[in-house]
Simulated scan of single mutants.
Amino acid sequence: MRSHETVTGAIAPELAGHVAAIGCDANTGGRTVCPEASAWAKKTRLEQACIIVTANESADRTVVCALTIFVQFECREGRLPDG
Protein backbone atom coordinates (compact mmCIF):
# COMPACT_ATOMS: atom_id res chain seq x y z
CA MET A 1 0.00 0.00 0.00
CA ARG A 2 1.33 3.42 -0.93
CA SER A 3 1.79 6.16 1.65
CA HIS A 4 -0.44 9.24 1.77
CA GLU A 5 2.49 11.39 0.63
CA THR A 6 3.21 9.15 -2.35
CA VAL A 7 -0.41 9.29 -3.42
CA THR A 8 -0.60 13.08 -2.90
CA GLY A 9 2.57 13.55 -4.97
CA ALA A 10 1.20 11.42 -7.79
CA ILE A 11 -2.18 13.14 -7.84
CA ALA A 12 -1.10 16.75 -7.30
CA PRO A 13 2.66 17.02 -7.86
CA GLU A 14 2.71 20.80 -7.33
CA LEU A 15 1.37 20.22 -3.79
CA ALA A 16 3.92 17.53 -2.90
CA GLY A 17 6.22 18.78 -0.18
CA HIS A 18 3.76 21.51 0.79
CA VAL A 19 0.68 19.52 1.78
CA ALA A 20 0.83 16.56 4.16
CA ALA A 21 -1.88 13.93 4.11
CA ILE A 22 -2.52 13.30 7.79
CA GLY A 23 -5.56 11.09 7.85
CA CYS A 24 -8.18 9.13 6.01
CA ASP A 25 -11.50 7.51 6.75
CA ALA A 26 -12.03 4.48 4.53
CA ASN A 27 -15.71 4.30 5.56
CA THR A 28 -16.60 7.81 4.38
CA GLY A 29 -13.92 8.43 1.76
CA GLY A 30 -12.76 11.48 3.67
CA ARG A 31 -9.12 12.56 3.53
CA THR A 32 -7.52 15.07 5.89
CA VAL A 33 -4.59 17.17 4.70
CA CYS A 34 -2.45 19.82 6.35
CA PRO A 35 -0.78 22.39 4.08
CA GLU A 36 2.40 24.02 5.41
CA ALA A 37 1.05 27.58 5.00
CA SER A 38 -2.25 29.38 4.44
CA ALA A 39 -1.35 30.03 0.79
CA TRP A 40 -1.04 26.27 0.19
CA ALA A 41 -4.30 25.71 2.07
CA LYS A 42 -6.03 28.17 -0.26
CA LYS A 43 -4.52 26.50 -3.35
CA THR A 44 -5.66 23.10 -2.05
CA ARG A 45 -9.18 24.42 -1.41
CA LEU A 46 -9.36 25.92 -4.90
CA GLU A 47 -8.19 22.68 -6.50
CA GLN A 48 -9.93 20.18 -4.23
CA ALA A 49 -12.54 19.12 -6.81
CA CYS A 50 -9.76 18.29 -9.30
CA ILE A 51 -7.76 16.51 -6.59
CA ILE A 52 -10.75 14.33 -5.70
CA VAL A 53 -11.50 13.49 -9.36
CA THR A 54 -7.84 12.69 -10.08
CA ALA A 55 -7.54 10.49 -6.96
CA ASN A 56 -10.62 8.53 -7.96
CA GLU A 57 -9.51 8.19 -11.58
CA SER A 58 -6.09 6.94 -10.52
CA ALA A 59 -7.73 4.27 -8.35
CA ASP A 60 -10.32 3.35 -11.00
CA ARG A 61 -13.00 3.68 -8.32
CA THR A 62 -14.33 6.13 -5.77
CA VAL A 63 -11.86 6.31 -2.90
CA VAL A 64 -12.04 10.00 -2.01
CA CYS A 65 -15.34 11.78 -1.45
CA ALA A 66 -14.19 14.84 0.48
CA LEU A 67 -11.10 16.68 1.69
CA THR A 68 -10.76 18.29 5.09
CA ILE A 69 -8.09 20.96 4.81
CA PHE A 70 -6.35 22.36 7.87
CA VAL A 71 -3.64 24.98 8.01
CA GLN A 72 -0.37 24.25 9.75
CA PHE A 73 -1.12 26.09 13.00
CA GLU A 74 -4.31 24.03 13.41
CA CYS A 75 -2.28 20.82 13.05
CA ARG A 76 0.33 22.00 15.56
CA GLU A 77 -2.33 23.03 18.07
CA GLY A 78 -4.12 19.69 17.75
CA ARG A 79 -7.28 21.09 16.18
CA LEU A 80 -7.87 17.91 14.23
CA PRO A 81 -11.20 16.18 13.71
CA ASP A 82 -12.34 13.50 16.12
CA GLY A 83 -12.01 9.94 14.98
Rank of each mutant, 00 (worst) to 15 (best):
E47C: 06
T54L: 06
W40L: 05
D60S: 15
A59Y: 05
R2S: 09
T68M: 05
T44V: 10
A21N: 00
E5G: 02
Q72H: 14
I69P: 12
V7H: 08
K42E: 12
S3H: 02
G23E: 00
R61H: 05
E47F: 09
R79V: 04
T6S: 11
G30Y: 03
A39H: 14
S3W: 01
A21Q: 01
A49N: 02
E36P: 01
R31N: 03
E77C: 12
A66E: 06
N56Q: 05
R31F: 09
K43P: 04
I11D: 01
I51K: 06
G83D: 01
V19F: 07
V19A: 00
A20L: 10
I69N: 00
A12H: 02
R2Y: 03
T28G: 08
H4T: 03
D25F: 03
T68E: 04
V63P: 01
T44P: 10
Q48T: 07
S3R: 06
F70V: 08
G30R: 12
K43V: 13
V33H: 03
E36H: 10
R2W: 01
G83F: 02
I11C: 05
M1I: 15
A55H: 11
P81G: 13
M1T: 15
I52L: 05
A20Q: 15
A10V: 11
G17M: 08
A49W: 00
Q48W: 02
R45Q: 12
P81D: 09
C24Q: 09
P13Q: 04
V71F: 07
V33I: 10
H4L: 11
G30E: 13
V64Y: 08
E36S: 14
A55E: 11
A66R: 00
R45N: 13
P81S: 10
W40R: 14
V64A: 12
E57Q: 15
A66W: 01
G78N: 08
T8K: 15
E14P: 03
G17W: 02
Q72L: 12
E36Y: 05
I51R: 01
A59E: 06
F73M: 08
T6V: 11
A49Q: 06
L67V: 04
H18K: 15
L15C: 10
H18N: 14
T8Q: 14
A26K: 15
P13D: 00
F70S: 03
T28Y: 00
I22C: 00
S3I: 04
T44I: 02
G9D: 02
V53T: 12
E74M: 10
M1S: 15
T8V: 13
R31H: 01
R2D: 05
R2M: 13
G78V: 11
E5A: 07
A37L: 01
G29Y: 06
K42F: 13
A10P: 07
A10F: 04
D25M: 07
L67Q: 02
A41C: 07
G29A: 03
P13H: 02
G78H: 05
